[in-house]
Design a binder for these strands. Structure first.
Lengths: 208, 208
DNA sequence: CCGTTTCTATCACGTCTGTGATATAAAAGT
DNA sequence: ACTTTTATATCACAGACGTGATAGAAACGG
């Protein structure tokens, strides 16, 4: 018996590779079949329609990114006991999971942007798009909230600051996706770190 | 005689409307002809190929955005004589031209993102994409440079700060494009302003 | 061993795409 | 008035697309 889940993942990988390289418009059933080394009939056996395939691929992308974040969070201890400098380090590393710093993350971020743009005109992907876009700001909110509780962050307007951090992360990622050769991973991390340094102050230090 | 330039602009408008509403993949010669109220033969008379049409439409989008910035800059006087609060106000208004705050800007930004993503796999749009992406950071660089000369901005690393401002602007715009109904113009402006407030300090005030 | 489900593979159909070729109509130049 | 551009309008073709239908092959369950 063939492992259906594995096959689906394999096919989804082909979708992601194609979408990352040539854009979502290049992802046809025939192209996916060729890329995955399967017959078009086989692909159709695992996915009833093109739309089902797209949805699954987008779902996969979101889940993998989420999984990476969860995994990284597992490696990270509680930040409340750390010095501000250490907290910045940890948070930079953590949020770097959302930046296209290596090939894997680059592919995921690129494909996600492709899907997000496609979802604008495809009601069938709307819920996933909302989930992904809201995900960044929700994460930012939680982080700032935790920092505020640790007394290392005294925001004038926490909601605006969360939106700002989310926009910065997505902006760095977006620009890096558009200019892979001109935007180094180091620069991405430096920008993110610079932002976090300004956000997180020593305990008791009042912001200007 | 028909005004060729006007016709081209009219056709380009149809492209932009279609791309903003349904994405770039929905922009076919036939769809453009229908949207512009012209015959497909007429469209082809003004544009030798699909590619020429796309390039012109992208060029138009970039030029319109640039023109808006230039116009706004014309209305703005020298910032060096202003108080920091006034400078923040002026800069917020100025950079708001890059955010999708009204229908016109929303269309332009949306379409530009569509084109930028398409350019990843289309070498024929590469130069325009670079121009657009570099445009934001160049603008950010100039602004911070001017502020630094006015003594209102003492950056640790001007290049990182420029990249940060550019990423923030593009991030706000990108997220607003993806969630038109959940992201209010007020929120976009508030985020941008919060960033500028932190960047620009009273003269003589040393950053922490 | 045999029936049944799962998987792989291929064909055909209708639709949409960009584009080459061509024809008619309108305006401009002389 | 006549020629020459300029503009509008169709047709036809080859290619790609998603999908319904169908048929063999392989693996499974009894």
């Amino acid at each position: 018996m063939v492992d259906g889940e594995e096959r689906r993942a394999h096919i989804a990988d082909a979708v992601l590779r194609l979408a990352a390289k040539d854009g979502l418009h290049a992802v046809s059933l025939r192209a996916v079949a060729a890329e995955s080394g399967l017959n078009i009939g086989s692909v159709r056996h695992y996915f009833d329609s093109q739309h089902a395939l797209m949805r699954f691929a987008m779902r996969t992308t979101i889940d993998r990114t989420t999984a990476r974040l969860v995994e990284r969070r597992g490696k990270t201890g509680s930040l409340s006991e750390l010095s501000p400098e250490e907290a910045v380090d940890q948070l930079t590393e953590f949020l770097s999971e959302l930046l296209p710093l290596d090939e894997r993350r680059r592919t995921e971020v690129t494909v996600l942007v492709e899907f997000l743009m496609a979802a604008r005109a495809d009601p069938g992907l709307d819920d996933l798009a909302r989930e992904a876009v809201q995900g960044t700001v929700t994460l930012a909110r939680r982080i700032l909230d935790a920092q505020a509780r640790s007394g290392r962050f005294e925001p004038k307007d926490p909601e605006v600051e969360a939106a700002r951090l989310a926009a910065l992360i997505d902006g760095i990622a977006f620009r890096a996706v558009l200019q892979p050769e001109l935007t180094t991973p180091e620069e991405c991390v430096a920008v993110l770190r610079a932002h976090l340094v300004e956000l997180i102050r020593p305990v008791g230090d009042t912001q200007v």
